[in-house]
Amino acid sequence: MAEKNNSHEELAGAKFFWVTVLNVVITIAEFVGGALSGSLSLISDAFHNAGDSVSVVFSYAASRISLRKQNARNTFGYKRAEIIAAFLNSIALALICVFLIIEAVKRISNPQPINGNLMLIIAVIGLAANLLSAFLLNSGSKSSLNIKATYLHILSDALSSIAIIFGGILIDLYNWTLADPIVTVIVAVYIFYESIPIIRQTFRILMQGAPNLDYDQIKHDLLQIDGVFSVHHVHAWMIDENNLIFSAHVNMHDMKLSEAQPIYSEISKVLKDKYHMCHVTIQAETTRGEHEDIIYDRGNDIP
């Protein structure tokens, strides 16, 4: 959990402030520079940066909400706030990419005059600011999908700036104005491709999807515990990318509750130490369901 807390600190205070300021400055510079130079790639990147500014604020708010304690209203806490933020940010990024590709295709069929020198200058400024923002968010992106989604926004802008610089050089030296929409398409396709895994993972979490676990091995491990002779009706799901929940029905010999408690403790220890479950719920039974499959399936999602 210490690593998770550190990820929140990455967006706190001065770092959060400067990432936001840098994105606002880049956005204004690229809108003005794009309008003056006629560069679609600069204007598209300005829209992208404007989205990033919202993304950073959104991510920070979600990270603060996720720190709230569990209560009667949310018994699992508020960690899903970050997953929702990551999901929405990634969806927005993908939609922006689609819009940029459409606009770039229009430009390819109808080229516009572009001031390559001004385009190049603005892109260099944008690259420097984006690299600094990416550096500020880098460490937190390793432990949080929320921060990773925001980091991807910033990093993609840095890559956009590199591509725009390359396009500006081609336009300035050879007056090849098609470089601008072509660069836009290449960058947009790359960003879209990078967004899809985050969308898929966050959607899976929000849909109560199960983590990637070897359920047969889990059953095998639990059956090695003295007193357990069957495991069935297993459910596993993710609160966020770092917290896994597990519940199961376990068949045990008829015994006193005080005798069953050590077996409960051993089951929890195996699941937490080997499979990194943060919360384990076990329902003890004698013979009920002992011949059922480990994953419950009676035509209903939840019996």
Rank of each mutant, 00 (worst) to 15 (best):
V189A: 14
S265H: 11
L36C: 06
Q208F: 04
G289E: 00
F17G: 09
L145K: 07
Q224F: 07
Y174H: 03
I164S: 01
S141I: 09
G209A: 12
I196M: 13
G299C: 13
I302K: 12
S160I: 12
V189C: 13
N212R: 11
Q283M: 10
S59I: 05
R204E: 09
I147E: 04
N138L: 14
E259K: 11
I169N: 00
P113Y: 03
F47A: 08
E9I: 10
F16D: 05
M1C: 02
N138K: 15
K256Q: 10
M119P: 04
T281R: 01
A29S: 15
F16Q: 08
D52F: 05
V189G: 02
A35K: 11
N117D: 11
R107G: 03
I191N: 07
A236C: 11
V187L: 10
D293M: 10
I108A: 08
N6E: 08
S7V: 09
R288G: 05
I91L: 15
N74W: 14
S37W: 00
V25R: 04
F31A: 04
H48R: 13
D52L: 11
I26V: 15
G167S: 10
L118D: 01
L40D: 00
D226M: 10
A14I: 14
L95H: 04
P181T: 04
I218V: 15
A163H: 00
I164F: 04
I43E: 08
F47P: 04
V280W: 06
E259N: 13
A94G: 12
S66H: 09
D45T: 06
D240L: 05
I101K: 02
I96Y: 03
F31R: 00
I65R: 12
S156H: 08
V32F: 07
F17E: 11
A81R: 01
A188T: 02
K15I: 02
Y215A: 07
G77T: 03
I196A: 06
P211N: 02
R64Q: 14
Q261A: 08
H220D: 07
G38V: 00
I26N: 01
I26W: 05
T202Y: 07
A128M: 13
S66M: 06
N49T: 03
P113V: 06
W237Q: 01
A50E: 03
W237L: 01
V250F: 00
L178S: 03
K269A: 12
T150F: 07
G289Q: 01
I282V: 15
P303A: 14
D240P: 07
V24T: 12
L173K: 15
S37I: 05
H233N: 12
I169S: 00
D226P: 05
S258N: 05
E290M: 15
D214H: 02
Y190G: 00
M119S: 13
Y296A: 15
Q217I: 01
F76G: 09
